[in-house]
């Protein structure tokens, strides 16, 4: 029983630690680190991580909280990333149930969800009249933004899910 408690505590630390690191990275490097002209959204990686490890409920909550934090830290419309983040967390958490083990399939799922989020964000901004959806520059920004997010997610997921013990982290329980 003590061993179970120890393992549980260790699992929590292993989940919380990358989240804390990613939050600090977002605050410190969020406006400085750019890949192909696009910034990585470290908070979105947290959403993906929590959704994959804990399921759709946690993913949905994390998506809303992290999305709102990202909106408040930035200069765009407040609430839009919160909306899309909660949908992303829900969807990734739901899809992770039938996910194969290992970090690569999870990264692929996150990449698809992130691309969908960036496209949806673009569509929302176009509907709101902020952006013009036409043109290669916009498409390039979507792809660059997704690549930046996936690059951070690849490192994070490899460290968390690639580890033989961490990879078995707490998953949604089948009751």
């Amino acid at each position: 029983m003590l061993a179970d408690e120890g393992a549980s505590r260790q699992g929590s630390v292993r989940l919380v630690l990358p989240c804390v690191v990613l939050v600090v990275l977002q605050l410190v490097l969020g406006g400085h680190l750019k890949l192909f002209g696009a910034s990585a959204d470290f908070l979105l990686v947290i959403v993906g991580l929590l959704a994959l490890m804990r399921g759709d409920v946690t993913g949905c909550v994390a998506g809303f909280v992290c999305g709102l934090a990202f909106d408040l830290l930035g200069s765009g419309m407040v609430g839009l990333t919160a909306l899309l983040g909660s949908v992303l967390g829900f969807a990734v958490g739901r899809a992770s149930r039938s996910m194969a083990e290992g970090w690569a399939p999870r990264l692929a799922l996150f990449a698809v969800a992130d691309l969908a989020l960036n496209v949806a964000y673009l569509i929302f901004l176009t509907i709101l009249g902020v952006l013009d959806v036409g043109g290669w520059a916009v498409l390039g920004r979507v792809i660059a933004s997704t690549i930046a997010d996936v690059a951070v997610a690849a490192i994070t997921f490899f460290l968390v899910f690639g580890h033989p013990r961490l990879g078995r982290g707490k998953r949604p329980e089948l009751r």
Binding site: Q26, G30, G31, H32, K34, G37, A38, S39, D41, F70, L73, G74, S75, G76, T81, N118, Y121, L122, L125, V130, L131, R141, A144, S145, A148
Partner: peptide
Amino acid sequence: VVATSSDDWSDTIT
């Protein structure tokens, strides 16, 4: 200037 925009759809500086 201490930071640039962290989201990719706006162009701001802090």
